[in-house]
Amino acid sequence: MPALEVKDLATTFHTDDGLVKAVSGVSFSLDQGKTLGVVGESGSGKSVTFLTVMGLVDPRHAQVSGSVLLNGEEMLGASQARLRQIRGATIGMIFQDPMTSLNPVKTIGWQLEEAVLIHQDVTRKEARRQAIEILKEVEIPRSDQRVDDYPHQFSGGMRQRVMIAMALINNPEVLIADEPTTALDVTTQAQILRLMGRLQQEHQMAIVMVTHDLGVVAELANDVIVMYGGKVVEQANVDDLFARPEMPYTWGLLGSLPRLNAEGSRLEQIPGQPPSLLNPPRGCPFNPRCAFVMDVCRTDLPELRRSDNGEEHYFRCHLDDETRTRTWEAKHAALVSKDAAA
C-alpha cells in the first residue's frame, strides 16, 4: 500500500468573481522511502495542491474533490478532529521561509514540545527530552542549551533544521517539503538536502519535494510531476523525464536553465508570463506561450495520456507522436552540441 495516494484531486476557490478552479486532475501515488518531486513556477498550483492534501485550505473558501489516501485512509471529508490527529503525526510539512515559519515569541523548545503534546499523552518533561533528542538528530550543536533559545537567535539554515525537527518529531510517514531550500544559501541548501536524505533513509518516510529547481528534483526525486496552470502536464520517473520529456513546457523548462557546459550561449526562453491561478486560459494552460500551438489547444484541454518512453510516463499534449519525437530530438541534439562545443 502506498504511503500517500492522490486521485483526481481538484481545489476550487470561491471568489468575488465566482468559482475559480485552482487545481484539478492531480493524481499520483508515493511509496514509503520514496521521493516525489513536484516542479512548477508561480501560479502552477503546486503549493495549493499540497495545502489541500494537508487539509489546510479553508473549507469556507474552497471546495475540494477527488481522493487523498494516507496509508489507505481517506483524508478528504474526514472530520476536523481526525485531520488534526493526522496532521503533524502521520503527515508533516515544512515551508519555504524558515525566518517566518516559527513563532517569534516562543522558544524553540516550547514549539517542539507543543508538537509532541498535541499528539502524545506524555509529560512536559518527556516532551522536552524528545525535543532535545530530535534537535540532536537534525545536527544542532549544544541542543540541550539551544532548546531554550528563541527563533531569532538561529540562522536561516538552523531554523530550517528546527522546522524539519518539528515536522519529524512524531515520526510521520509522509513529509511534505514546500520549497524547503529556496530561501537558503547554496552551501546551506546542500546541508539541508543531505540531512533530509539521511533522515529519509533512517525513518523510511515518503517525501514530497515541491520546488521550482530542476536540479534539486534531478538529485533527490524518484518520480517527478510537472505542474503548470493548476494542471499536471507531465509525470514520470525522474530518469525518463529528463531523458525524454514529452511536453513543450517541460522542453522549455529544461532549455531555459543556464546549463553547466554551455556558457555564454543563448538560453531557450519561454515567451510570456506564467498564468495566474485565478484566470487560467481556456484549453491547454500552456497554449498562450507554446511555440507549437494549434487551434485545438485553444479550446480543448488535452487528456493526460501515456507515453511509450518509460513505464509510468504521462503527459498532456495535442501534438502527434511523430512531431514530438522529431522536435525533441532536434532540441536534444542542439543541447548536446552545445555541451560538446564548450
Partner: peptide
Amino acid sequence: EDYVRTARAKGASERRVMVHH
C-alpha cells in the same frame, strides 16, 4: 503569518492556534 500555518500543520486546534500563536 507563516507560523500560524506551521501551528496548524502540527495539528494544533483552532483554539490553541488562537491562544498560543
